[in-house]
Amino acid sequence: MPSRLTKPSVWLPILSLVLVLGGWEVVGRSIDPLLFAPPSAVAATLASLLATGELQAAAQVTMKALFLGYALAIIAGIPFGVLMGALPRLGDILQPYLYAIFSTPRVVVVPLIIVWFGIGFEARLFLVFFWSAIAISVNTAQGVRHARPDLVEVARSFRANRIEMARHVLIPGAIPFVVAGLRIGAERAIVGVIIGEMFLQIVGLGGVIQKGSVELLPAKMLSAVMVIAVLGTIIVTMLDLVEKRFQSWRGEST
């Protein structure tokens, strides 16, 4: 990216925000409040939801399922990925299933999850955990399998044993892939937790949206959407930064 285009500008985003909010306010006021909420109404709702603590409580419920499911996905996903990478045959055999599950939209699996896990916390946890774990393990396996052959040869030529090979070549080489998997897994986990809250158990931030929809309170829905967007942005941006840090580790020399 040429710096000319991406050089940070403070005024343009503010100007754009003012334009968008202003336009929205004008349009919003002229439409039925049951359908559309101007920013002033959203701000008021957001403030009252925060004052009553409803939003914080909802966010806490969401975060609990999100972090527990994601942590489990990391704990299970990385070792499983290492296993698949170390045993290429196992990886090759499992890959089609993982790929198929991963490409299946989760909303359509909801009926199956209901019959298997019910509609409680475990069911939501599974929605967060499973797809996130697949993303992490598939990327980890790729990292382990894609060790740079020239560096493997360097280590062999200097008589490195298997442990040294793993420590100095295979594991550091796999880390950028693992981190990429962690980022994709986090995105999946965020979507998973919201699906669970909207389709399984009407709780958390997803539940706030769903309730707002039933009560015909667009301002309430928008408040929850905003909180989700902010939380999502924070989590993904943090992992993006981590990923960038490891970018040079991937670098082929010429």
Binding site: I194, P218, L222, I228, G232
Partner: peptide
């Protein structure tokens, strides 16, 4: 912001609008 917001969260709004 749209990219990191789960589409599912926007669906009820689309429905209303």
């Amino acid at each position: 912001a749209l990219f990191v917001t789960p589409t599912i969260a926007l669906v009820p709004l689309v429905l209303v609008w």
